[in-house]
Simulated scan of single mutants.
Amino acid sequence: MDHLDAMRVFVRVVERCSFTRTAEDLGLPRSTVTEAVKMLEARLDVPLLLRSTRHVRPTPDGERYARHCRSILNDIEVAEASFSGRSPQGVVRASVHGTLARFFLLPHLPDFLARHPGLSVELRESDRLVSVIEEGFDCALRVGVPRECDLMMRRVTTLPEVTLVSPAYLARHGVPTHPDRLLADGHRMIGFWCSAVNGPMPLEFLCDGERRTVSLPTALTVSSAESYTAAAHAGLGIIQIPRYHAAAALAVGTLVELLPEFPLPAVPVTLLYPRSRHLAPRVQVFMDWVQGCFRA
């Protein structure tokens, strides 16, 4: 294994915090991954990783070296692409919300792959806030206001949201007339767990142009968008989701809109990616394509 390949392996170990996961990602024997790191440590004469039976993390020298490696490898990819005239090559690893992927991205993916035959795409679905760098993603497509200050951000679109309940829920609890009456009139919400606040997200409304939050009792809290919607169909409480995700249910009446005169603020959709002087061509074309999917 040459020096550049060893650097690629080392960066992946730092991102994945695991020799085993790195070997699986790169399709290499675990012993090859271990030897690549040992070769770099011998070359630099410093320990790059702290190893335990359950965890691998970089030393301070390892963190500094990994930053230099990322910059070097990215510059090489950009330079080679500018001279080769070839279409981008390699794997794009992206974290996405599953509902966004299924509704906006997957229908357009065959055309994207046909136009870029040298690329393959690895979509990891998650409703949690992944760590883009530590978990080895090239980018993440997020719904909501990003909180990461160490990543670059690219606004993709905003999505209108809607407050929903099932007809059965309304039959039991009645139709509220104002967000301020929800708690007093005994209404319940389905909690959607948010790691950023370490608890269920409150409901949000616009009242006289001002954003207002309302927290209600919850009999159920979930961390999956699909379970969140399914719980509303089961009549367990009030939910708030992007309107596109509710279109089919609204059309057939299995969910109904609540308090439409007090709409939610539109929710931003953002691409997050690591800071770099240059963006690798494979990541650039993928993010351009993602943005186009929301315009289609």
Rank of each mutant, 00 (worst) to 15 (best):
L4A: 11
A6L: 05
M7S: 07
V14D: 04
S18E: 10
E24N: 11
L40N: 01
R43D: 14
D45W: 14
P47H: 09
L48A: 07
T53E: 13
R57S: 13
P58Y: 07
P60N: 09
E63N: 09
R64Y: 15
A66Q: 04
S71L: 12
V78Y: 03
F83T: 04
G85I: 07
S95Q: 12
V96T: 05
P107Q: 04
L109V: 13
G118E: 06
S120L: 12
L123F: 12
E125V: 05
V130L: 14
V132F: 01
I133L: 15
E135M: 14
G136F: 05
L141P: 00
V145I: 14
P146N: 11
C149A: 15
V156I: 14
L159I: 03
A168R: 15
Y169V: 01
H173A: 10
H187C: 03
H187D: 03
H187V: 00
R188N: 00
R188H: 06
S195F: 09
N198S: 13
P200W: 04
M201A: 10
P202A: 04
F205M: 05
C207R: 08
S215L: 10
T218K: 07
A225H: 03
A225W: 00
Y228M: 08
A232F: 00
G235M: 04
G237P: 01
G237E: 03
I238Q: 01
Q240A: 03
H245N: 01
A247G: 00
A248K: 02
L250Y: 01
A251W: 02
T254V: 14
P260Q: 09
P260H: 08
F262M: 09
L264P: 02
V269P: 00
L271A: 13
L272C: 12
Y273M: 12
V283E: 03
V285N: 01
Q291D: 10
Q291C: 15
